[in-house]
Design a protein around this nucleic acid. Structure first.
Lengths: 229, 229
DNA sequence: CGATTGCAGATTGTCTACAATCTGCAATCG
DNA sequence: CGATTGCAGATTGTAGACAATCTGCAATCG
Protein backbone atom coordinates (compact mmCIF):
# COMPACT_ATOMS: atom_id res chain seq x y z
CA UNK A 1 0.00 0.00 0.00
CA UNK A 2 1.88 2.92 -1.35
CA UNK A 3 -0.71 5.66 -0.92
CA UNK A 4 -3.18 6.12 1.89
CA UNK A 5 -6.87 6.45 1.17
CA UNK A 6 -7.04 9.52 3.38
CA UNK A 7 -4.97 12.46 2.10
CA UNK A 8 -1.76 13.02 3.97
CA UNK A 9 -1.40 15.92 6.36
CA UNK A 10 1.30 17.16 4.04
CA UNK A 11 -1.08 17.15 1.10
CA UNK A 12 -3.74 18.91 3.08
CA UNK A 13 -1.43 21.70 4.14
CA UNK A 14 -0.13 22.05 0.62
CA UNK A 15 -3.42 22.05 -1.19
CA UNK A 16 -5.50 24.04 1.26
CA UNK A 17 -4.61 27.68 1.43
CA UNK A 18 -4.46 29.48 4.73
CA UNK A 19 -7.39 31.75 3.89
CA UNK A 20 -9.37 28.64 2.96
CA UNK A 21 -8.64 26.96 6.26
CA UNK A 22 -9.46 30.14 8.12
CA UNK A 23 -12.69 30.39 6.18
CA UNK A 24 -14.02 27.01 7.26
CA UNK A 25 -12.87 27.74 10.79
CA UNK A 26 -14.78 31.02 10.97
CA UNK A 27 -17.74 29.32 9.32
CA UNK A 28 -17.75 26.77 12.12
CA UNK A 29 -17.59 29.56 14.70
CA UNK A 30 -20.68 31.10 13.13
CA UNK A 31 -22.62 27.88 12.59
CA UNK A 32 -21.86 26.68 16.11
CA UNK A 33 -23.09 29.98 17.43
CA UNK A 34 -19.80 31.04 18.98
CA UNK A 35 -20.08 34.11 16.82
CA UNK A 36 -23.66 35.14 17.40
CA UNK A 37 -26.04 36.44 14.79
CA UNK A 38 -25.62 40.17 14.30
CA UNK A 39 -22.37 40.24 16.20
CA UNK A 40 -19.45 42.30 15.02
CA UNK A 41 -16.47 40.26 13.85
CA UNK A 42 -13.13 41.64 14.92
CA UNK A 43 -10.37 41.02 12.41
CA UNK A 44 -7.41 41.47 14.73
CA UNK A 45 -8.97 39.19 17.31
CA UNK A 46 -9.43 36.42 14.75
CA UNK A 47 -5.93 37.01 13.42
CA UNK A 48 -4.32 36.52 16.80
CA UNK A 49 -6.67 33.62 17.51
CA UNK A 50 -5.50 31.77 14.41
CA UNK A 51 -1.94 33.03 14.63
CA UNK A 52 -1.97 34.79 11.27
CA UNK A 53 -1.95 38.35 10.08
CA UNK A 54 -5.13 40.14 9.10
CA UNK A 55 -4.68 39.57 5.38
CA UNK A 56 -5.84 35.95 5.26
CA UNK A 57 -8.64 36.77 7.68
CA UNK A 58 -9.94 39.49 5.40
CA UNK A 59 -9.81 37.16 2.42
CA UNK A 60 -11.76 34.53 4.30
CA UNK A 61 -14.34 37.09 5.35
CA UNK A 62 -14.79 38.20 1.74
CA UNK A 63 -15.56 34.64 0.78
CA UNK A 64 -17.99 34.31 3.65
CA UNK A 65 -19.63 37.53 2.59
CA UNK A 66 -20.12 36.11 -0.88
CA UNK A 67 -21.77 33.07 0.65
CA UNK A 68 -24.00 35.41 2.65
CA UNK A 69 -22.92 34.24 6.07
CA UNK A 70 -21.64 37.70 6.96
CA UNK A 71 -22.36 41.18 5.73
CA UNK A 72 -19.89 44.01 5.51
CA UNK A 73 -20.24 47.72 6.22
CA UNK A 74 -17.57 50.03 4.97
CA UNK A 75 -15.25 51.27 7.69
CA UNK A 76 -17.32 49.46 10.28
CA UNK A 77 -16.34 45.90 9.56
CA UNK A 78 -18.21 42.68 9.03
CA UNK A 79 -21.13 41.33 11.03
CA UNK A 80 -22.61 37.87 11.28
CA UNK A 81 -25.74 37.97 9.18
CA UNK A 82 -29.14 37.90 10.76
CA UNK A 83 -31.79 36.01 8.88
CA UNK A 84 -35.35 37.23 9.18
CA UNK A 85 -38.35 34.95 8.91
CA UNK A 86 -39.06 36.60 5.57
CA UNK A 87 -35.66 35.64 4.23
CA UNK A 88 -35.93 32.15 5.66
CA UNK A 89 -39.18 31.92 3.71
CA UNK A 90 -37.38 32.97 0.56
CA UNK A 91 -34.81 30.27 1.12
CA UNK A 92 -37.52 27.67 1.73
CA UNK A 93 -39.14 28.63 -1.55
CA UNK A 94 -35.94 27.66 -3.32
CA UNK A 95 -35.32 24.69 -1.12
CA UNK A 96 -38.67 23.18 -1.94
CA UNK A 97 -37.85 23.30 -5.62
CA UNK A 98 -34.40 21.82 -5.08
CA UNK A 99 -35.64 19.12 -2.72
CA UNK A 100 -38.02 17.89 -5.38
CA UNK A 101 -35.13 17.67 -7.80
CA UNK A 102 -33.01 15.92 -5.20
CA UNK A 103 -35.69 13.35 -4.47
CA UNK A 104 -36.07 12.54 -8.14
CA UNK A 105 -32.37 12.23 -8.78
CA UNK A 106 -31.66 10.16 -5.72
CA UNK A 107 -34.38 7.71 -6.72
CA UNK A 108 -32.69 7.44 -10.11
CA UNK A 109 -29.03 7.42 -9.12
CA UNK A 110 -28.54 6.15 -5.59
CA UNK A 111 -26.77 2.81 -5.22
CA UNK A 112 -28.17 0.16 -2.91
CA UNK A 113 -25.14 0.82 -0.74
CA UNK A 114 -26.10 4.47 -0.41
CA UNK A 115 -29.70 3.54 0.20
CA UNK A 116 -28.55 1.34 3.05
CA UNK A 117 -26.65 4.28 4.51
CA UNK A 118 -29.74 6.46 4.37
CA UNK A 119 -31.81 3.83 6.12
CA UNK A 120 -29.19 3.55 8.83
CA UNK A 121 -29.32 7.28 9.53
CA UNK A 122 -33.11 7.21 9.64
CA UNK A 123 -32.89 4.38 12.17
CA UNK A 124 -30.50 6.44 14.28
CA UNK A 125 -32.95 9.30 14.15
CA UNK A 126 -35.63 6.95 15.41
CA UNK A 127 -33.39 6.21 18.38
CA UNK A 128 -32.88 9.92 18.97
CA UNK A 129 -36.64 10.44 18.92
CA UNK A 130 -37.11 7.63 21.43
CA UNK A 131 -34.75 9.20 23.96
CA UNK A 132 -35.88 12.74 23.10
CA UNK A 133 -32.38 13.75 22.02
CA UNK A 134 -33.26 16.95 20.15
CA UNK A 135 -29.69 17.99 19.55
CA UNK A 136 -28.68 14.56 18.30
CA UNK A 137 -31.71 14.43 16.03
CA UNK A 138 -30.86 17.81 14.61
CA UNK A 139 -27.32 16.72 13.73
CA UNK A 140 -28.54 13.49 12.17
CA UNK A 141 -31.17 15.37 10.21
CA UNK A 142 -28.48 17.61 8.73
CA UNK A 143 -26.41 14.56 7.89
CA UNK A 144 -29.38 12.84 6.27
CA UNK A 145 -30.16 15.72 3.93
CA UNK A 146 -26.48 16.18 3.22
CA UNK A 147 -26.25 12.56 2.15
CA UNK A 148 -29.36 12.88 0.03
CA UNK A 149 -28.09 15.82 -1.98
CA UNK A 150 -24.76 14.11 -2.28
CA UNK A 151 -26.36 10.97 -3.69
CA UNK A 152 -28.25 13.03 -6.23
CA UNK A 153 -24.98 13.02 -8.19
CA UNK A 154 -24.90 16.69 -9.12
CA UNK A 155 -21.99 18.49 -7.48
CA UNK A 156 -23.22 21.91 -8.38
CA UNK A 157 -26.58 21.08 -6.85
CA UNK A 158 -24.77 19.98 -3.72
CA UNK A 159 -23.00 23.32 -3.50
CA UNK A 160 -26.15 25.33 -4.04
CA UNK A 161 -28.14 23.30 -1.58
CA UNK A 162 -25.52 23.51 1.15
CA UNK A 163 -25.29 27.23 0.68
CA UNK A 164 -29.00 27.59 1.29
CA UNK A 165 -28.90 25.21 4.24
CA UNK A 166 -26.21 27.28 5.89
CA UNK A 167 -28.46 30.30 5.61
CA UNK A 168 -31.22 28.43 7.40
CA UNK A 169 -28.81 27.24 10.07
CA UNK A 170 -28.07 30.87 10.76
CA UNK A 171 -31.76 31.28 11.41
CA UNK A 172 -32.17 28.27 13.64
CA UNK A 173 -29.32 29.46 15.77
CA UNK A 174 -31.51 32.26 16.99
CA UNK A 175 -32.85 29.80 19.51
CA UNK A 176 -35.87 28.29 17.88
CA UNK A 177 -34.72 24.79 17.26
CA UNK A 178 -37.82 23.00 16.31
CA UNK A 179 -41.50 23.65 15.86
CA UNK A 180 -42.46 20.42 17.55
CA UNK A 181 -42.92 16.94 16.22
CA UNK A 182 -39.58 15.78 14.97
CA UNK A 183 -41.04 12.30 15.17
CA UNK A 184 -43.32 13.40 12.35
CA UNK A 185 -40.31 14.67 10.48
CA UNK A 186 -38.69 11.27 10.58
CA UNK A 187 -41.89 9.63 9.37
CA UNK A 188 -41.60 11.84 6.33
CA UNK A 189 -37.99 10.72 5.90
CA UNK A 190 -39.10 7.12 5.86
CA UNK A 191 -41.72 7.81 3.21
CA UNK A 192 -39.06 9.39 1.02
CA UNK A 193 -36.73 6.45 1.51
CA UNK A 194 -39.50 4.05 0.61
CA UNK A 195 -40.11 5.88 -2.64
CA UNK A 196 -36.38 5.90 -3.37
CA UNK A 197 -36.15 2.18 -2.66
CA UNK A 198 -39.03 1.64 -5.08
CA UNK A 199 -37.13 3.77 -7.62
CA UNK A 200 -40.23 5.91 -7.99
CA UNK A 201 -38.48 9.17 -8.81
CA UNK A 202 -41.60 11.24 -9.28
CA UNK A 203 -42.99 10.17 -5.92
CA UNK A 204 -39.66 10.60 -4.16
CA UNK A 205 -39.43 14.11 -5.53
CA UNK A 206 -42.94 14.97 -4.48
CA UNK A 207 -42.41 13.58 -0.99
CA UNK A 208 -39.10 15.31 -0.41
CA UNK A 209 -40.61 18.60 -1.55
CA UNK A 210 -43.52 18.02 0.80
CA UNK A 211 -41.04 17.37 3.58
CA UNK A 212 -39.49 20.78 2.91
CA UNK A 213 -42.96 22.33 3.00
CA UNK A 214 -43.62 20.73 6.37
CA UNK A 215 -40.21 21.81 7.64
CA UNK A 216 -41.05 25.36 6.74
CA UNK A 217 -44.31 25.08 8.62
CA UNK A 218 -42.46 23.73 11.65
CA UNK A 219 -40.12 26.70 11.44
CA UNK A 220 -43.07 29.06 11.40
CA UNK A 221 -44.60 27.42 14.42
CA UNK A 222 -41.30 27.67 16.26
CA UNK A 223 -40.96 31.33 15.30
CA UNK A 224 -44.48 32.08 16.46
CA UNK A 225 -43.82 30.31 19.74
CA UNK A 226 -40.60 32.24 20.22
CA UNK A 227 -42.42 35.51 19.77
CA UNK A 228 -45.23 34.51 22.11
CA UNK A 229 -42.94 33.49 24.94
CA UNK B 1 -35.65 68.33 -5.51
CA UNK B 2 -33.32 67.76 -2.62
CA UNK B 3 -32.17 64.21 -3.33
CA UNK B 4 -31.50 62.62 -6.69
CA UNK B 5 -33.15 59.35 -7.65
CA UNK B 6 -29.78 57.95 -8.65
CA UNK B 7 -27.33 57.61 -5.75
CA UNK B 8 -24.65 60.24 -5.66
CA UNK B 9 -21.12 59.43 -6.65
CA UNK B 10 -20.18 60.29 -3.10
CA UNK B 11 -22.61 57.74 -1.74
CA UNK B 12 -21.39 55.10 -4.13
CA UNK B 13 -17.78 55.56 -3.15
CA UNK B 14 -18.67 55.57 0.50
CA UNK B 15 -20.92 52.55 0.51
CA UNK B 16 -19.08 50.37 -1.98
CA UNK B 17 -15.77 49.06 -0.76
CA UNK B 18 -12.77 49.01 -3.03
CA UNK B 19 -12.60 45.22 -3.12
CA UNK B 20 -16.28 45.19 -4.02
CA UNK B 21 -15.77 47.54 -6.93
CA UNK B 22 -12.76 45.60 -8.08
CA UNK B 23 -14.79 42.42 -7.85
CA UNK B 24 -17.49 43.55 -10.26
CA UNK B 25 -14.82 44.95 -12.54
CA UNK B 26 -12.96 41.66 -12.73
CA UNK B 27 -16.25 39.85 -13.13
CA UNK B 28 -16.96 41.99 -16.16
CA UNK B 29 -13.52 41.21 -17.57
CA UNK B 30 -14.30 37.53 -17.27
CA UNK B 31 -17.88 37.67 -18.53
CA UNK B 32 -16.88 39.85 -21.48
CA UNK B 33 -14.16 37.35 -22.33
CA UNK B 34 -11.27 39.74 -21.84
CA UNK B 35 -9.98 37.25 -19.34
CA UNK B 36 -10.37 33.99 -21.22
CA UNK B 37 -11.54 30.72 -19.75
CA UNK B 38 -8.67 28.83 -18.19
CA UNK B 39 -6.40 31.84 -18.29
CA UNK B 40 -4.13 32.65 -15.40
CA UNK B 41 -5.04 35.84 -13.55
CA UNK B 42 -2.07 37.96 -12.58
CA UNK B 43 -2.60 39.85 -9.32
CA UNK B 44 0.05 42.50 -9.85
CA UNK B 45 -1.20 43.22 -13.33
CA UNK B 46 -4.74 43.75 -12.10
CA UNK B 47 -3.46 45.84 -9.22
CA UNK B 48 -1.61 48.26 -11.47
CA UNK B 49 -4.53 48.23 -13.89
CA UNK B 50 -6.94 49.38 -11.19
CA UNK B 51 -4.38 51.52 -9.43
CA UNK B 52 -4.53 49.64 -6.13
CA UNK B 53 -2.28 47.32 -4.24
CA UNK B 54 -2.66 43.57 -4.39
CA UNK B 55 -4.63 43.32 -1.15
CA UNK B 56 -8.01 44.43 -2.49
CA UNK B 57 -7.41 42.38 -5.64
CA UNK B 58 -6.87 39.26 -3.60
CA UNK B 59 -10.02 39.90 -1.60
CA UNK B 60 -12.02 40.34 -4.78
CA UNK B 61 -10.60 37.13 -6.19
CA UNK B 62 -11.59 35.23 -3.06
CA UNK B 63 -15.14 36.39 -3.52
CA UNK B 64 -15.07 35.40 -7.18
CA UNK B 65 -13.71 32.02 -6.19
CA UNK B 66 -16.63 31.53 -3.82
CA UNK B 67 -18.99 32.35 -6.67
CA UNK B 68 -17.15 29.80 -8.78
CA UNK B 69 -16.03 32.16 -11.51
CA UNK B 70 -12.38 31.45 -10.77
CA UNK B 71 -10.50 28.61 -9.15
CA UNK B 72 -7.39 28.92 -7.07
CA UNK B 73 -4.28 26.76 -6.88
CA UNK B 74 -1.96 27.25 -3.98
CA UNK B 75 1.24 29.08 -4.91
CA UNK B 76 0.17 29.11 -8.53
CA UNK B 77 -2.55 31.70 -8.41
CA UNK B 78 -6.10 31.90 -9.65
CA UNK B 79 -7.44 30.87 -13.03
CA UNK B 80 -10.64 31.72 -14.83
CA UNK B 81 -12.81 28.66 -14.46
CA UNK B 82 -13.53 26.43 -17.39
CA UNK B 83 -16.97 24.92 -17.53
CA UNK B 84 -17.33 21.51 -19.10
CA UNK B 85 -20.48 20.37 -20.86
CA UNK B 86 -21.02 18.04 -17.92
CA UNK B 87 -20.99 20.90 -15.47
CA UNK B 88 -23.19 23.02 -17.71
CA UNK B 89 -25.61 20.10 -17.61
CA UNK B 90 -25.50 20.11 -13.85
CA UNK B 91 -26.30 23.80 -13.84
CA UNK B 92 -29.17 23.29 -16.27
CA UNK B 93 -30.60 20.63 -13.99
CA UNK B 94 -30.86 23.23 -11.26
CA UNK B 95 -31.92 25.97 -13.60
CA UNK B 96 -34.87 23.96 -14.86
CA UNK B 97 -36.14 23.58 -11.33
CA UNK B 98 -35.63 27.27 -10.58
CA UNK B 99 -37.17 28.42 -13.84
CA UNK B 100 -40.33 26.56 -13.02
CA UNK B 101 -40.45 28.33 -9.66
CA UNK B 102 -39.75 31.66 -11.34
CA UNK B 103 -42.52 31.19 -13.86
CA UNK B 104 -45.01 30.39 -11.14
CA UNK B 105 -44.03 33.29 -8.96
CA UNK B 106 -43.96 35.82 -11.76
CA UNK B 107 -47.45 34.80 -12.82
CA UNK B 108 -48.54 35.40 -9.23
CA UNK B 109 -46.60 38.55 -8.37
CA UNK B 110 -45.76 40.56 -11.46
CA UNK B 111 -47.48 43.92 -11.81
CA UNK B 112 -49.06 44.90 -15.11
CA UNK B 113 -46.30 47.48 -15.38
CA UNK B 114 -43.67 44.75 -15.16
CA UNK B 115 -45.59 42.61 -17.59
CA UNK B 116 -45.52 45.48 -20.04
CA UNK B 117 -41.76 45.70 -19.64
CA UNK B 118 -41.38 42.00 -20.39
CA UNK B 119 -43.48 42.30 -23.52
CA UNK B 120 -41.36 45.22 -24.67
CA UNK B 121 -38.17 43.21 -24.36
CA UNK B 122 -39.74 40.30 -26.23
CA UNK B 123 -40.70 42.72 -29.00
CA UNK B 124 -37.11 43.97 -29.14
CA UNK B 125 -35.93 40.40 -29.43
CA UNK B 126 -38.29 39.94 -32.36
CA UNK B 127 -36.57 42.87 -34.02
CA UNK B 128 -33.18 41.34 -33.32
CA UNK B 129 -34.33 38.08 -34.89
CA UNK B 130 -35.57 39.94 -37.96
CA UNK B 131 -32.19 41.55 -38.60
CA UNK B 132 -30.28 38.43 -37.50
CA UNK B 133 -28.55 40.35 -34.68
CA UNK B 134 -27.26 37.39 -32.69
CA UNK B 135 -25.26 39.45 -30.24
CA UNK B 136 -28.12 41.85 -29.59
CA UNK B 137 -30.52 38.96 -29.10
CA UNK B 138 -28.19 37.36 -26.63
CA UNK B 139 -27.99 40.53 -24.55
CA UNK B 140 -31.75 40.99 -24.63
CA UNK B 141 -32.27 37.38 -23.69
CA UNK B 142 -30.10 37.84 -20.62
CA UNK B 143 -32.02 40.97 -19.73
CA UNK B 144 -35.34 39.18 -20.18
CA UNK B 145 -34.49 36.36 -17.82
CA UNK B 146 -32.94 38.80 -15.40
CA UNK B 147 -36.19 40.75 -15.31
CA UNK B 148 -38.20 37.58 -14.88
CA UNK B 149 -36.30 36.40 -11.82
CA UNK B 150 -36.43 39.91 -10.46
CA UNK B 151 -40.19 40.05 -10.82
CA UNK B 152 -40.55 36.75 -9.00
CA UNK B 153 -40.13 38.81 -5.84
CA UNK B 154 -37.62 36.58 -4.06
CA UNK B 155 -34.26 38.28 -3.63
CA UNK B 156 -32.50 35.14 -2.56
CA UNK B 157 -33.82 33.37 -5.63
CA UNK B 158 -32.49 36.22 -7.73
CA UNK B 159 -29.04 35.79 -6.23
CA UNK B 160 -29.01 32.05 -6.71
CA UNK B 161 -30.28 32.25 -10.25
CA UNK B 162 -27.78 34.90 -11.29
CA UNK B 163 -24.97 32.86 -9.82
CA UNK B 164 -25.94 29.89 -11.97
CA UNK B 165 -26.40 32.07 -15.03
CA UNK B 166 -22.90 33.46 -14.66
CA UNK B 167 -21.59 29.92 -14.69
CA UNK B 168 -23.36 29.26 -17.97
CA UNK B 169 -22.06 32.51 -19.43
CA UNK B 170 -18.59 31.21 -18.72
CA UNK B 171 -19.48 28.24 -20.88
CA UNK B 172 -20.95 30.20 -23.74
CA UNK B 173 -17.82 32.30 -23.87
CA UNK B 174 -15.99 29.32 -25.23
CA UNK B 175 -17.33 30.33 -28.60
CA UNK B 176 -20.49 28.37 -29.01
CA UNK B 177 -23.05 31.06 -28.90
CA UNK B 178 -26.19 29.41 -29.99
CA UNK B 179 -27.41 26.03 -31.11
CA UNK B 180 -29.53 27.51 -33.86
CA UNK B 181 -33.05 28.82 -33.85
CA UNK B 182 -33.16 31.75 -31.51
CA UNK B 183 -36.40 32.61 -33.26
CA UNK B 184 -37.80 29.48 -31.64
CA UNK B 185 -36.44 30.65 -28.33
CA UNK B 186 -38.40 33.87 -28.55
CA UNK B 187 -41.55 31.96 -29.44
CA UNK B 188 -41.11 30.17 -26.14
CA UNK B 189 -40.71 33.52 -24.40
CA UNK B 190 -44.02 34.66 -25.81
CA UNK B 191 -45.78 31.55 -24.61
CA UNK B 192 -44.44 32.16 -21.11
CA UNK B 193 -45.58 35.78 -21.20
CA UNK B 194 -49.02 34.72 -22.34
CA UNK B 195 -49.34 32.38 -19.38
CA UNK B 196 -48.13 35.11 -17.04
CA UNK B 197 -50.62 37.57 -18.51
CA UNK B 198 -53.36 34.99 -17.92
CA UNK B 199 -52.09 34.63 -14.33
CA UNK B 200 -51.84 30.89 -14.92
CA UNK B 201 -48.96 30.22 -12.56
CA UNK B 202 -48.83 26.49 -13.07
CA UNK B 203 -48.68 26.86 -16.83
CA UNK B 204 -46.17 29.69 -16.69
CA UNK B 205 -43.95 27.54 -14.49
CA UNK B 206 -44.24 24.57 -16.80
CA UNK B 207 -43.48 26.66 -19.87
CA UNK B 208 -40.49 28.43 -18.38
CA UNK B 209 -39.07 25.10 -17.26
CA UNK B 210 -39.62 23.76 -20.75
CA UNK B 211 -37.83 26.79 -22.12
CA UNK B 212 -34.83 25.92 -19.97
CA UNK B 213 -35.00 22.35 -21.24
CA UNK B 214 -34.96 23.58 -24.83
CA UNK B 215 -32.13 25.98 -24.03
CA UNK B 216 -30.11 23.10 -22.74
CA UNK B 217 -30.80 21.16 -25.93
CA UNK B 218 -29.68 24.17 -27.98
CA UNK B 219 -26.50 24.28 -25.94
CA UNK B 220 -25.87 20.62 -26.66
CA UNK B 221 -26.40 21.13 -30.37
CA UNK B 222 -23.99 24.05 -30.32
CA UNK B 223 -21.42 22.02 -28.41
CA UNK B 224 -21.75 19.12 -30.83
CA UNK B 225 -21.35 21.49 -33.77
CA UNK B 226 -18.28 23.05 -32.17
CA UNK B 227 -16.68 19.64 -31.78
CA UNK B 228 -17.55 18.62 -35.35
CA UNK B 229 -16.09 21.72 -36.93
C1' DC C 1 -30.08 70.76 31.37
C1' DG C 2 -29.74 69.21 26.49
C1' DA C 3 -27.06 69.49 22.39
C1' DT C 4 -22.72 70.02 20.23
C1' DT C 5 -17.84 69.68 19.87
C1' DG C 6 -13.53 67.66 20.40
C1' DC C 7 -10.51 64.41 21.68
C1' DA C 8 -8.38 59.34 22.73
C1' DG C 9 -8.67 54.58 21.76
C1' DA C 10 -9.88 51.12 18.84
C1' DT C 11 -10.76 49.24 14.29
C1' DT C 12 -10.74 49.08 9.49
C1' DG C 13 -8.64 49.95 4.74
C1' DT C 14 -4.66 49.98 2.15
C1' DC C 15 0.09 49.85 1.02
C1' DT C 16 4.88 48.27 0.96
C1' DA C 17 8.21 44.89 1.93
C1' DC C 18 9.90 40.44 2.25
C1' DA C 19 9.87 35.30 2.37
C1' DA C 20 8.27 31.10 -0.05
C1' DT C 21 7.25 28.98 -4.16
C1' DC C 22 6.91 28.24 -8.96
C1' DT C 23 8.45 28.45 -14.02
C1' DG C 24 11.37 28.27 -17.84
C1' DC C 25 15.79 27.77 -19.59
C1' DA C 26 20.45 26.77 -19.78
C1' DA C 27 24.27 23.97 -18.19
C1' DT C 28 25.66 19.51 -16.87
C1' DC C 29 25.93 14.58 -16.60
C1' DG C 30 25.19 9.80 -17.81
C1' DC D 1 21.08 12.84 -27.26
C1' DG D 2 17.77 12.68 -23.38
C1' DA D 3 17.26 13.44 -18.54
C1' DT D 4 18.50 15.91 -14.52
C1' DT D 5 20.09 19.74 -11.93
C1' DG D 6 20.56 24.37 -10.75
C1' DC D 7 19.90 28.90 -11.19
C1' DA D 8 17.38 33.78 -12.34
C1' DG D 9 13.14 36.03 -12.87
C1' DA D 10 8.54 36.27 -11.88
C1' DT D 11 4.58 35.48 -8.92
C1' DT D 12 2.20 34.33 -4.90
C1' DG D 13 1.56 34.25 0.36
C1' DT D 14 2.00 36.63 4.49
C1' DA D 15 3.34 39.99 7.67
C1' DG D 16 3.79 44.48 9.54
C1' DA D 17 3.12 49.49 9.31
C1' DC D 18 0.56 53.50 8.58
C1' DA D 19 -3.41 56.45 7.28
C1' DA D 20 -8.47 56.97 7.47
C1' DT D 21 -12.51 56.29 9.88
C1' DC D 22 -15.49 55.20 13.56
C1' DT D 23 -17.05 55.03 18.62
C1' DG D 24 -17.77 56.49 23.11
C1' DC D 25 -17.14 59.78 26.50
C1' DA D 26 -16.06 63.97 28.54
C1' DA D 27 -15.87 68.94 28.20
C1' DT D 28 -18.08 72.98 26.54
C1' DC D 29 -21.61 76.10 25.09
C1' DG D 30 -26.20 77.97 24.45
Amino acid sequence: MATAAVPTVLQLLQSNSLPGLVQVEIEQLILRGELASGQHVNESELASRFGTSRGPIREALRALEESRLVRSEKNRGVFVREISVAEADEIYDIREALDQLIGQRVAECATTEQLRGLKAVVAEMDDAVRVQDVKGYHALNLKFHDMLVDFAGNSRLTESYRLLTKGLLLFRLRGLQDGGGFAVSNTEHKAVIAAVAARDSSRAGRLLRQHAVESRARMHRAAAAAVAE
